[in-house]
Design a protein around this nucleic acid. Structure first.
Lengths: 265, 265
DNA sequence: TGAATCACTCACTCGATTAATCACAAAAAG
DNA sequence: CTTTTTGTGATTAATCGAGTGAGTGATTCA
């Protein structure tokens, strides 16, 4: 995947257009026309490497989508709408489609989702794990304990915690270096800090959180299968829910013991 | 296409998920799991009509995307993230991807886009035509003449005109029935109304606009190839740009003649 | 006016992706 | 211990789209 559009804008644009549902020819044709402004099938074919005879189909596709206008002459001339207009057009369409998806999924979602869970679920990938943690935060009612290595206390996590704090949830944060604590104190006024419970600098340590004493998530940083020793470490996590959930029971034991020891009421 | 997600939410959700890049199996599996909350491969297979042996691959795909968590037991249990979380996830991803597309296209776009155009370009489809008209509006510097049948004076058009008016562009509006004029006067304070230049109620009439006397667009309402006599009439338009553009020349003649006659300075 | 080039449409082949089926080993259940 | 169920892997079938080529009509240049 090409994530940096400034490096190879051509390839990046083509990739996105294809993934947005355009055919390969249509995508390359549009990109060619975008940099050309306007031109004939021949022009397009030369810069896009699309067979000239197929440019016409591609143009049809683009014209149907409103991305290209056609000048009826011989040879035909094609004109691409501006980058801004095209982007807005896709933005609107996709926004609309996510709305459709949202209402459809809400429509079929069962009223009650899992009250008590036995066993331990797995989540992989940093994004997914963060997402799950945030979801847990938003369901918190009384207390959130969150212990983490530095790198995983990202802005969205802080936002989530601060949201919960505003609702009156008490926040207990562990594993935060002293120099970052200042900032946290301003972002999440009520947050209570505590020292790491163990040697948290262990290379594979990730995060560990407990919500209202009945929902927990614990993660570790791992190197992907491709044993690249780079710092592109992904994250894998397990979580459990419910008062009698085994993972919850164990972690609750540890947490209450340590927290009480540190902060004796 | 299924545009009404409340009618058949299953089909609507599946379609969107597929178009967002999931395989057919993965889409149907996720939808099944969403309505189930959680379940085994067998459960999923029964409600989704996905072959049981293929559910596992589908789950892999979904797990990689962070849409499904897996409980390692026998039989394995699968759990779908909530409708809201899933929708947000897609929303973020697509937002990011349109941003990538936008910067990539801007990167490629030539500095100067067509100064003078010979010939007449075509645009089809109401959305595309409106889009083009709005683009023209945003490029206006002095004057916009816009003549239209009632149905085509939509909110986005009014917004576009009002934006231009704020920049100091003078607006001349034609074909607006007296009862709607009131509202226009409040939305676009400086707008100047004029009577239709001809029998504008002609069934196939669409809209007609001229920007700064050097850019014009004229449209007609047409029935699609599928000769359904319903009111689902689409729109087809032609436009031209440049002082010497033939379409521009002709329309400018008509407009200045009629406008001067009506509004003698 | 005629020849030659060019533009466009249409029909077809090939290859890749993916849906779908089947066979088999491992694990639970009775 | 037998029987059913679960999970993995391999294999086939079908679908879609990229790529190619033939053929017709238009345009240009001699």
């Amino acid at each position: 995947m090409n994530d940096d559009p400034t490096e190879d804008p051509r390839a990046a644009a083509i990739e996105q257009l294809e993934r947005f549902g355009l055919s390969a020819y249509a995508a390359r044709t549009f990109v060619a026309l975008s940099s050309l402004g306007s031109g004939t099938a021949r022009d397009v074919s030369q810069v896009s490497e699309v067979p000239r005879t197929r440019v016409y189909d591609a143009i049809d596709e683009l014209h149907d989508r409103g991305l290209v206008d056609v000048l009826q002459s011989s040879p035909k001339q094609f004109w691409a709408i501006s980058a801004e207009t095209a982007s807005r057009s896709f933005e609107h369409e996709l926004q609309h489609r996510t709305d459709v998806l949202r209402t459809a999924l809400n429509e079929l979602e069962p009223a009650e989702r899992r009250a008590e869970q036995r066993g331990v679920w797995t989540v992989d990938g940093r994004k997914a794990v963060t997402e799950r943690a945030l979801e847990f935060f938003s369901g918190a009612e009384e207390e959130i304990v969150y212990m983490t290595v530095e790198g995983l206390l990202t802005d969205d996590v802080i936002d989530g915690l601060s949201e919960a704090a505003k609702r009156g949830v008490s926040i207990k944060l562990g594993g935060v270096s002293t120099d970052v604590q200042e900032r946290i104190q301003s972002d999440i006024p009520g947050a209570e800090m505590f020292e790491s419970l163990w040697v948290w600098s262990d290379t594979s340590a990730g995060r560990l959180t407990m919500i209202d004493g009945r929902k927990t998530l614990i993660s570790a940083l791992v190197n992907g299968e491709d044993a690249a020793p780079s710092d592109a470490r992904s994250e894998t996590a397990i979580w459990g829910e419910g008062d009698k959930n085994s993972l919850v029971v164990v972690l609750r034991e540890i947490f209450t013991w340590r927290l009480d020891a540190e902060d004796p009421k």
